[in-house]
Nucleic acid binder design. Structure first.
Lengths: 357, 357
DNA sequence: TTGTAAGCGTTATCAA
DNA sequence: TTGATAACGCTTACAA
């Protein structure tokens, strides 16, 4: 495998000249340039990125640390990161499924020297210390952090506002007894969505009531199991805000088997707008989460800072989470063409998205 | 940011000793070991991976080159790669959305020195030359290549066998006029699936008939549009094999709006087993594609070769693509519990998979 | 057991 | 405009 020395020897110049030609330096004679490019292509020379970034102290690689890769949420985040990075000619060093602080830290440690910046999701408050340690080593952009998480660049989803808007939508349809199926306790998204639900109720002069807050853990099964408690609650709820679509899916399925009609007997709203949501029966009203945008914005934020010479103040971006009205809440669907036409034009498929395999 | 020199200075030993301690070399005194570890943790020293791999000529990083990141297929492939890599303490350097040979090559070039091996998908036959060039630089495992693609390690999906089995399933149900909706011409998966369809027909003594082969491009819309031609074909088909689930989805939706009942008036089988498939109405009979396993096996293949000192012969692995019988083909569903129970136990969710966010 | 010094493949700094 | 040569941060002979 040829190195810069081989090219220099073949071109009969010094390695310094080769380097200058390859990096497009101006102070090179036409003659040298010609000889070097010829030699390089004759040998099919590929510069060693590792050696290069050792001296330049820059890698053109962005690190990504995620707690898990499961589900379409993380896939979309990665897709957004990759796409945005590619546009700027960056590559992505990925490491996921990091449960505890210790593994997060060791993954970050092993990226030392290989990346120009790190985009990470801090699973819990315990990892705040880890973030502090990591930030001493390279620039960090946090994904979806807890609100008051230090003075670090961050981009997140408007969980609170989205949940509030979803609940307000149900209120606007006349519902007064609105239940919720919570996500796992301690989870950032889950907590924020519950807060939004509470806020909307209070805004309508309604007091949050514990019996109307059903336990869940974001799984389909927990949504399914919540159906019994839901129907047993008094006053009998006429609507539910499920903290994510998976639980909404489980719930709808349970209600169907219990002959409770959605939306007639029970209005249901979810959160996430997963792919299945629009194909459910009835199509699920939900809150759109732009996971792709989350990744995309994180990259842009990172590279903006990297490229700006003067110090950039800490920035915190919040992506909107709009309510997508379909049929499961009983309102007239605003965005869904009759089934036949939908196959032709689907406004929800992110631009550029294409089918697999 | 502290380097090995800082640690050496603080511990009052040479950098060689620091290196030995940090790499767990045996020939170090207890005294030195103690001093070094103390100094390292006091400074919170993180070794520079770039410098390290420059000397060791190994990075513990696997490169991944994909034509596109769109859709759950690629997400799953990446998830499989990441998971398998993590188990072996490897990280993943990702670069996707490479349309033409030139960008593939330049992405690979920029990975020179940063990776120990490359897992790539060669979009078309044109990229065969690129693969040859790349293989001179590092070990390569190909994903889903065209059958006779050089002497390179590869892992792929049994497109041919899966399509044949799907078609045979329809034949077994008594259908004789079986149409297909093709994928885009020139696409590997598409071509193989068509071959499988043909093979099954011939095996049943039926000649493939062009009017029964409807154009499609793997998009939902193309499946939708194929409905008209399907119903116009003579002899009127009683069953369709769609080359992927997206097209099957579009088709089913079109048939519903035309009051053609599935499976009574038209049996439909898809390919891929995308997440939506089991939630369709009726649930779609399809062929399972193990994208996660594809990535996982590629990593294992790569690392097996990397770790085996003696030369390893070229290996080619083909992952099975079993038919998943649901309702859209008219047979009794073998694997689907009544709707109510499904929320509890879903045999298709890959082990360890969890909901998002 | 330890330290010195020679790489690893580049880029960057000087003189020339 | 060029070429020695010194970094870059680490590992590893080789000597001590």
């Amino acid at each position: 495998v040829p190195t810069i020395h081989d090219v220099a020897q073949l071109a009969d110049v010094s390695i310094a000249t080769v380097s200058r030609v390859l990096n497009g330096s101006l102070r090179v004679s036409e003659e040298s340039r010609r000889k070097v490019t010829a030699a390089a292509s004759q040998l099919d020379y590929w510069p060693n990125g590792t050696a290069r970034s050792l001296t330049t102290r820059s890698t053109h690689v962005l690190g990504v640390l995620l707690p898990d890769l499961y589900g379409e949420f993380f896939s979309e985040v990665i897709r957004g990161i990759d796409q945005a990075a590619r546009v700027q000619m960056y590559q992505v060093l990925l490491s996921s499924s990091h449960a505890d602080t210790e593994t997060v830290l060791s993954a970050a440690r092993s990226m030392r020297g290989r990346i120009d910046g790190l985009i990470m999701m801090a699973p819990d408050e315990a990892s705040a210390e880890a973030v502090e340690l990591i930030r001493r080593r390279f620039p960090v952009v946090l994904l979806n952090p807890r609100s008051p998480s230090g003075d670090c660049d961050a981009v997140s989803i408007a969980n609170f506002e989205g949940a509030r808007a979803a609940t307000q939508h149900l209120l606007g349809l006349g519902h007064r007894a609105i239940a919720t199926i919570r996500g796992p306790l301690g989870n950032v998204d889950s907590d924020e969505r519950l807060r939004g639900y509470h806020d909307a109720l209070r805004g309508a002069g309604l007091a949050p009531s514990p019996p109307l807050e059903l336990a869940g853990d974001f799984t389909e099964g927990s949504g399914y199991r919540a159906a019994a408690d839901l129907l047993a609650a008094r006053p009998r709820p006429t609507a539910v805000f499920a903290a994510n679509d998976s639980m909404a899916l489980g719930l709808v399925s349970a209600l169907a088997s219990l002959d409770v009609s959605v939306p007639k007997d029970m209005a249901v709203v979810g959160f996430d707008d997963i792919a299945i949501a629009r194909y459910m029966n009835p199509p699920l009203t939900t809150v759109r989460v732009d996971a792709f945008g989350l990744g995309q914005h994180a990259v842009r934020m990172m590279l903006y800072r990297a490229r700006t010479p003067e110090p950039v103040p800490v920035r915190r971006e919040v992506l909107p989470a709009p309510v997508v009205v379909r049929c499961s809440c009983g309102a007239a669907p605003a965005d869904r063409a009759p089934r036949g036409r939908e196959a032709e034009i689907d406004p929800f498929i992110p631009s550029g998205r294409r089918p697999s395999p």
